[in-house]
Design a protein around this nucleic acid. Sequence first.
RNA 1: GCGUUCGUAGCUCAGCUGGAUAGAGCGACGGACUUCGAAUCCGUAGGUCGGGGGUUCGACUCCCUCCGGACGCACCA
Length: 584
Amino acid sequence: MKSLREAWRAAIATAVAAYLEEKGADPSIASAIVAESPPDASMGDIGFPVFPLAKPLRMGPPQIAAAIVERLAGSTLPPGTCKAVGPYVNVFLDRAAVAKAVVSAPVAGASYGSSDSLAGTRIMIEFSSPNTNKPLHLGHLRNDALGESVSRILKANGAEVLKINLINDRGVHICKSMLSYMTYGKGTTPDSEKVKSDHFVGDYYVRFNDLKKEDPQAEEKAQDLLVKWEAADPETIDLWKTMNEWAVSGIRRTYDRTGVSFDKFYYESQIYLTGKEEVQKGLANGAFFKAEDGSVRIDLSAIGLEEKVLLRKDGTSIYMTQDIGLAIHRHEDWPFDRLVYVVANEQQYHFKVLFYILEKLGYEWAKNLFHLSYGLVNLPEGRMKTREGTVVDADTLLDSLRDQALEEIQSKGREDSVADPVATAEQVALGAVHYYLMQATPSKDMIFNPAESLSFNGNTGPYIQYMGARISSMLRKRDRGEGKAGAGTIKPELLSGNAEWELVKLVASYPEAVELAGAGYNPAVVASHLYAVASAFSRFYHDEPILTCEDPDLAATRLALSEAVLVVLRNGLGLLCIPFLEAM
RNA sequence: GCGUUCGUAGCUCAGCUGGAUAGAGCGACGGACUUCGAAUCCGUAGGUCGGGGGUUCGACUCCCUCCGGACGCACCA
C-alpha cells in the first residue's frame, strides 16, 4: 500500500512538474503534492488535492485536476486508474493487485507488518523503574505496557532494542517499610503469612502511618536508618537485602503475568553515587559554575529556566547528578543511538534539564534522548490517592477482571470449548487492561473504566480477541474438512466487492500503521488500526458467507482473506502485549 | 506569578506533516439469531471542535488572547 501510494504520488508529481513548466511556472511547486485519503471509497483510494497549484497556474483547482489527469493518460502508471474529482486527482487502485498481495500475508506470518525503517538503529529504552517499598499499581501497568509495547514496535521496524529497568531500591521510603517491619513484623515472612512478597512489603510501608501516630520520632528514625544504611551497618543491610528481595521477586511475578520483560536491570543502590566526576568535569570545562555557597550549579537561562544545583555544598549528589552519571554509564555499557525514558509527565522538567546538561557536557548522543512522557491514569470515581487508599493495585485489578471474565465464560457455557477456562479468563483480562491502556494517546491523562475495558462489545481488547477466535474457529473447521473451501482455489480478483475491498485495504495498510506507531512511539496507532480491521471483519463475516459459501473458489478466497486478517490481529495484538486466543 | 500541557457528542476517546459533509465506542431509543461463535451486526437521535481574534484558497489542526483543568517551577526521588 505504501509503495503504491508513493508510486502514485511520484507519478502525479512528475506530471504536475511538467505541466507547471509548460505553463511557465516554477516546477518545484510540484513537491507540494501530498497524498490524502478520500472520505469515501467510492471517491477513490488515494486523493491528491491540487489547491496549491491554483495560484501559480492562475487556474481553478477543478480545471487543474482535469488537466493533470489528461496529461497522465499518455504515461505509464502504477496499477490502477485516476480521475479528477472536483479539485482532487483521485486514484482507484487495482483491487485485484492489492488483494493478491494481501492473501499472501499468511505466508509472511509473524513478520507481516515488519519493516526495516529503523534498521541499524540501537535504541535503549528504560521503563517501569519501580520502588521496592510497594507493589505495582495501575499507573505502573500503563508504564510497563507502554514500554514493552513501544519496544516491540521499534523492533518490528528493524531497530535493535535494549529494554532496561532501574530498580529504585534505596532511599528513605525503603527505610520506612523496614522500620515498620522491625516494629510490627515479629519475624514473619511472606511465606509464613501466605502473602505475595511485594504486597507483604507494601503492607508494612502502609503501616508506617500507624507507626507515626504511635511514635512521633518515626520520621527521624527512618532518616537515621538511611544513615546507617549508607554506613553499611551489617544488620541494616541484611534486612534491606531481605525486604528488597521480597519486593523485587513479587514485582517480577507481576511482570511475568503481564508479559513484560527486561534485558538488563540497574539498581539505584549501586549507581546512586555516580555522576559526581562528570559534574566535576563540567565544572572544569566551564559548563557549570561554583556558587557562592560552594554548591555546583548550571545556568539554565539559555532554555528559559533558572539555575539547577548539581552538587550540594557538602559535595553530595542529588537525583539529577545520578541521572547524568547513569546516562553516560549506560552509553558506555551499550552504545545506543537513542535512549528513551518512559516516565510520567510530572518529570518533564527533570528530563528537559537532564538532556540540556548532557548536551552541555558535549555528548553528541544527547540530542537523541527522548522522554516518552505519559499521563496519569485516573478512575471514574476520580484520582487515585495513596493517602485515601484509592490506589488500584495491579494484581488485585487483574484478579478481579479475570474472575469477571471467568464468570462470563461460564455463563456462556463455553467452559468445554476452551482448554483451560481460568487461563483463558486471565488472558482476556490482560487483553482488557492492556488494550484500554494502549488505545489512548500516551501523553494524555486518561480515565480507566474497568467494566468498560472488559466489555466484549465496542472498542476493546476482548472484542478484538473475539474476532481472532472466530477466524480461528473457521480455520479449524476447514482443516476438519467442513465447507467447500478445501476444494476451491484462491482467486484474489474475487475480492473486488466493496465489503471485501474495505478489509483488503485495512490489511494492506497495517504495515504503515506499525511504521507510524514506531515513528511516534505510539502504540495507540496500532490499537486503532486493529479495531478498524476487527470491526470491518465483523461486518464482512456477518454479511457474507465465508466457509459456508457455495462457490468453492469464493469460499477459499474469502477464507484466505480471513486468514490474512488473523495474521494482522495476531501480530498487532502481540505488539500491544495482548494474548491472541484461538478460542475463548 | 512563571513554565509545560490539555479542553472535540451525555460519558470515554480518534482525527496522520492544515485539505473534500468533524469520526468511533459506550450509554439511550429501534431493529436482526432454525444459518460459518448474537461475547455479533444494522439503524436513529446527539457536536456553532472551551470563547474571541488572526494567518491561509482552505483551520479541530498553525499564531495571539481570554476562560477552565492537570502537572511542574527542591541542595526529594
